[in-house]
Design a protein around this nucleic acid. Sequence first.
DNA 1: GCTATATCCTCGTGGTCCGAGCATAATCAG
DNA 2: CTGATTATGCTCGGACCACGAGGATATAGC
Lengths: 398, 398
Amino acid sequence: MTASTETGREPGRARVDRWRTKAEVLAEVRRSPGLTRVELARRLGLSSASVTETVARLREGGWLCEHRAPVQGRGRPTTTLEPAPDGPRVVAVDVRHEDWRVGLAGLDGQVSGIVTARHDRDPQRVATALAAAVGDIAAGHRTVAVGLAAPAPISDDGLVRATELAWDAVDLGPVTAALDERCPDPVPLLVGNDATLAGVAEARTGAAAGAGTAVYLTVEVGLGGALLLDGLPHLGAHGQAGEYGHLPFGDPARPCSCGATGCWGPEVDGRALARRLGDPPPGDPRSYALGVLERAAGGDAAAVHAVCGVAAALARGVAGLVAVHDPDVVVLGGLARGLRAAPGFDEAYRRGLMAFRRDDPVPVRDAVHGDDGTLHGAAALALDHATSAEGLAESCEP
Amino acid sequence: MTASTETGREPGRARVDRWRTKAEVLAEVRRSPGLTRVELARRLGLSSASVTETVARLREGGWLCEHRAPVQGRGRPTTTLEPAPDGPRVVAVDVRHEDWRVGLAGLDGQVSGIVTARHDRDPQRVATALAAAVGDIAAGHRTVAVGLAAPAPISDDGLVRATELAWDAVDLGPVTAALDERCPDPVPLLVGNDATLAGVAEARTGAAAGAGTAVYLTVEVGLGGALLLDGLPHLGAHGQAGEYGHLPFGDPARPCSCGATGCWGPEVDGRALARRLGDPPPGDPRSYALGVLERAAGGDAAAVHAVCGVAAALARGVAGLVAVHDPDVVVLGGLARGLRAAPGFDEAYRRGLMAFRRDDPVPVRDAVHGDDGTLHGAAALALDHATSAEGLAESCEP
DNA sequence: GCTATATCCTCGTGGTCCGAGCATAATCAG
DNA sequence: CTGATTATGCTCGGACCACGAGGATATAGC
C-alpha cells in the first residue's frame, strides 16, 4: 500500500506519538458524537488543560467542531464535540462481480453520492475505470484515504486475487497512480474483503454496534463471514479467515466445490433449498432462494418445509459458533436474514446451545445495512487509517 | 482485580504514557533476548539517544541487564540486552481438579521451584491454603504479579465459577488479602482459564511461538482450546470462548452432556474410542484413552482401527477450523498429540482442507509444553501485566 | 601509532501532559 | 439588579520524553 522502508524504521516515533492522544480523542468523539469536553476528559483520563490543547489542534485541522451545549443547570455552559461535517473525506469503493460502486464518506461514516457502473470483468479495464472514477471524486474533496472492498481474499501485498471472478490478480497500481497524480498530499489505499467489510459495518454502526466480540455471517451462494473484535475483523495469517461456510457441519457424504466434504455452506443456500424441494441444482442459487423464500412467505407448504429445514441447519451451526466465540451478538446478512425469520430457526438455535447458555441466549439479529454494508465497511476501513495516530501525522504534518 | 474508581479516571495518563516506550523495549528484549542496542533502535524506530535513556531506566529498575557482545568487526563494540536474571518475579499458580501447583518465574518466563499439593475440593480450604503458599513465595522475592489458572470459565469479577468441580464460586479474596499483607507494594492477581493459558504458553515459547494467529486444541475429557492472536487469547464476551468441543461436527443423533447434540468433543476422546471398540462408557475416559493408544502403538489391530477413526474425526474438524481462522499453525495438546501421530490423521486433514490450501497446508504440531504448559501460561499472564506500561508504572513509581 | 568505523553519550530544543490558579458564564437567592 | 454559587475553560510554569547534532569512545586494519 504505502511505501515501506524494508531495512527498518528510522527514528520518527515522536512524530506519530504526538498524535496518539489526538487520535484517541477523535475516536471517542466519533463513537459518541455530541460528547461534552468534561465527559471526554473523564473517559480518557485527561486533564482539562490537555483537552483544551488537543481539541484546539483537531479543530485547526478541521476534524472536530464544537457547538454550544444546552444548559443543564448552574455553572459555566459547556460545548459539545462533533466530527466536523465539512472535515476530511474518504472515498469508499465496492467492486462486485458485475459492477462497482463508489461513494464519498465524511467522519460520521455516512456514505453519500454513490455512483454505480457495470464492468466486463476484465481486470485491466476495471482498474483503469476505477482509477478515473476514484481520482475524480478524490480530487474534488479533501480526501485523506480510499477504502476498497473486493469479492476475494486479500493478500498482504495489496493485490486482489479474485479466483471466483476469473481474475488472476488485479493490480491496483493505476488507482494509486491516479491518486498520487491528482491529489496534492499522498492518499493511502486500503483494501479489504467484501464480506469482512460488511461485518465491520455492522460492528460499527449496525446490529453489532458496540459489541466487543461479534460474529457476522452472510449467505449468498455458500456462506461467509467474519469474527469482529472491538470492531476490527480477524483476518488470519493470510487474510483468508472467515470461511465459515466450509466448517463440516453438513452431511459428510456430500462433496463441496471447495474440495472438502460436508461443508456447511451448501446446506444453507439456494442449492440446499433445491435439494429439499427435489429441484435440480439452480443456475443462480441466490435468486432461486429468494423465490423459495417468497413462496414460503406466501404459505406454500413445501417451500415452508424446505425453508424450515435449511433454517435449522443454519441455526445449529450458529449455536456451535456461539460456543466457540462467545460473542456479544451474532448478526446475519444476505439470505440468512430470511432464514432467521423462518419457523424452526429459534428452536434449533436453542437446542444447539450449551445448556448453561439457554437462560440468556446470545442474541441473533438481522444485519441493518443492506446492500450498502460493504461500502460502509470500506469507508470505515479508510476512516480507521485516516484517524489513527499514523494517519493523522501523515495528513496533518507535511 | 485491582481496585478501580468506577466514577471514571482522574488525569494520570502521563504517568502511564511515560512507561509506554520502556514497555515496548522490554517486550522486544523479552521476545529476542541477546538483542543489541542498535538492532533494538532499528526495530522500534528509536534514536540512539532514546535507547540510552530507556535502557538506563530499565536497568535501574532491575528489568534488563547488559553484556558485552562478541566483537564482529571494526567499530566500537556494542552490548547485548537481556531480561535481568535477578529481576522481578511473578508467582504462577495452577489449580487443578485434585491438586494445585505453585511456581516462581523470572522475566524469561521459565517457571522454577514448582511445588504441588493435593486438595479436597473444598473451595474455602483451597483458597486458604493457596493464600498461605502464594504469600510465602511472593514475600520471599521481589514479586510484581501473580497469575492463576483455574479449570473453569473466568468471569469478569475475578471469581472462579468451577461448575465441573462442584465449586460454585471460589472467592480468591484470601489470596489477595495475603498478598496485600505480606508484600510491601501492591501485587495484582490475574486469573485465567487453564486450557486458554496452556495455549498462551504454546504461543509464547512453544509450538506456536511467533505465530500471529494460532489455534490450540487439547483433548482430555472432551475438547477445549483457544484462538491466540499475537500471543493473546481471544476470551469472548463473557470469557467463555474456546469451547471447540461443542461444535456440531459429530453425529447429529448423539446427545452431549452439554445439552446439545452432535458435539465434536465426545467424538474425539476416550468415550469415542470405547464406542468404536464396543466397550461400555469408561469411568475415566482419559486413562482409558491412554490405554487404547498404548495398545494401538503395540500393534493391536482393533485399537489401531479405533484410534484411526477417532484421529480422522479430529483431523476433519481441525481442517474446518483452518478454514475459519486461517492460522499460522495449529497446536495439539493432551491426548490429541497421540491422535495426530495415528495413521489416518494426515490423510483426513488433507481431505478436509479447501483445495487451494492443500499445496501448502497449515502445519499441525504437537504441544511442546507438557503438564507445565498451564503453569507457563499463568506466568505469562502475570508477566504480561507486570511488563505492560501500566504494570511498570505501578511497580516503579510509588 | 594512526586511521577508519561503529557505537555510545551529552546537551539543547521542541513537544506533551499536568496541577494550580485565574477567568468566564451561567443559575440562584435576596 | 447585585452578589454568591457553581461548573467549566484557559494560561502558565514544571516535569518529562524523543530527537538531532556533535563530541567521545572503543575496536579492527594498516
